[in-house]
Deep mutational scan, measured.
Amino acid sequence: GQVNVNNTTYTFPTPKLAKEFAQKAAKKYNLTVHVSGNTVTVK
């Protein structure tokens, strides 16, 4: 799974890890998680 945070893309071996990372990043920066297919964007 891929996660985009502040124009930086992070790649994870599983969608589960990507989702967990996205949720932590969203909480940390007070942003929202947007899911589109296999790509998760935090903005």
Rank of each mutant, 00 (worst) to 15 (best):
V33M: 05
Y29E: 04
H34S: 13
N30Q: 07
T32G: 05
T41I: 13
A22G: 04
V3D: 11
E20Q: 13
L17V: 04
N7K: 13
N6T: 13
F12W: 02
A25P: 00
T39P: 00
A18L: 02
K16I: 08
V33Q: 01
A26K: 13
T41D: 03
N6P: 10
T32P: 05
P13D: 09
K16M: 09
E20S: 09
P15I: 11
Q2D: 11
A26L: 10
K24R: 14
A26N: 05
Q23H: 09
K19E: 10
V35N: 02
V40L: 02
E20N: 07
Q2M: 12
T32H: 08
N7M: 15
T11Y: 13
A18G: 01
V35R: 06
A25Y: 15
H34A: 09
G1W: 07
L17P: 01
V42N: 00
G37D: 04
L31R: 05
N4H: 13
E20W: 15
Y29K: 06
A22K: 02
A25L: 15
T41A: 04
V33E: 00
T9G: 03
Q2T: 12
T14D: 05
G37E: 04
V5L: 12
T14N: 11
G1N: 11
S36M: 10
V40R: 00
T11M: 06
F21H: 01
T32W: 07
K28F: 13
K27R: 10
H34P: 01
F21I: 02
N7F: 15
K27L: 11
T11L: 06
A18D: 00
K16P: 02
V40M: 02
Y10W: 09
N38A: 06
N38Q: 05
T9E: 05
K27S: 09
V5R: 12
T9Y: 09
S36L: 10
G1Q: 11
S36W: 09
Q2Y: 10
K24H: 10
T9L: 07
K24S: 06
K43I: 15
K24F: 14
V33D: 00
V33H: 02
T39Y: 05
T14K: 02
K24L: 14
N7A: 14
K19H: 11
E20H: 08
K43R: 12
A26R: 15
V35L: 09
A22I: 02
Q23D: 10
P15T: 10
E20F: 10
T11G: 02
T39L: 07
K43N: 09
V3A: 12
A18E: 00
T8C: 15
G37S: 03
S36Q: 11
T9H: 06
H34Y: 14
T9D: 03
T9N: 04
Q2A: 12
A18F: 02
V35S: 02
T8G: 07
V35T: 04
K27A: 10
N4I: 12
K16R: 10
T14R: 02
A18N: 00
N6D: 09
K19A: 10
V5P: 11
K16V: 06
N4Q: 12
Y10S: 01
T39Q: 08
E20P: 00
A22D: 00
S36K: 10
T32K: 08
A25K: 04
T32R: 06
G37Y: 04
N30D: 05
V3Q: 11
T39H: 05
F12S: 01
N38W: 03
T14E: 03
T32Q: 10
K24T: 07
K28L: 14
F12T: 01
Q23T: 10
V35K: 02
V3N: 11
G37A: 04
T14Q: 02
A18W: 02
S36D: 11
P13I: 06
K43L: 15
T14Y: 03
N30V: 03
P13W: 05
A25F: 15
K24D: 04
T9P: 02
T41K: 04
V5S: 12
L31Y: 06
P15S: 11
Y29G: 06
A26T: 08
V5H: 12
V40S: 01
E20L: 15
G1V: 14
N4K: 10
N38S: 08
F21W: 15
V42G: 01
V42Y: 03
T14G: 03
A18T: 01
G1R: 07
F21P: 00
T8N: 08
G37L: 04
S36P: 00
K16L: 10
L17R: 06
N6W: 15
E20V: 09
T39M: 08
N7G: 14
T39N: 05
V5D: 11
Y10N: 01
L17Q: 10
T9I: 13
Y29V: 04
T9F: 07
V5I: 13
N7S: 15
T41L: 06
A22S: 03
A26I: 11
K27N: 07
A25Q: 06
T32I: 14
Q23A: 14
N38E: 03
K24W: 15
K27H: 07
Y29N: 04
V33Y: 07
K24G: 04
S36H: 11
T32D: 08
F21Q: 01
A18M: 01
P13S: 12
N30P: 03
N4P: 11
P15A: 14
V5K: 12
N7R: 14
F12A: 01
T8W: 15
K43D: 07
K27Y: 08
Y10L: 06
T32S: 09
A25G: 02
T32A: 08
T9S: 08
S36F: 10
V40G: 00
G37P: 00
G1H: 12
A26S: 09
L31V: 12
K24P: 00
K27V: 07
L31A: 08
L31Q: 05
A26Q: 10
Y10T: 02
K16W: 08
T39K: 09
Q2I: 12
K19W: 15
V35C: 03
P15V: 13
T9Q: 07
P13T: 08
P13F: 06
Q2L: 11
Q23N: 09
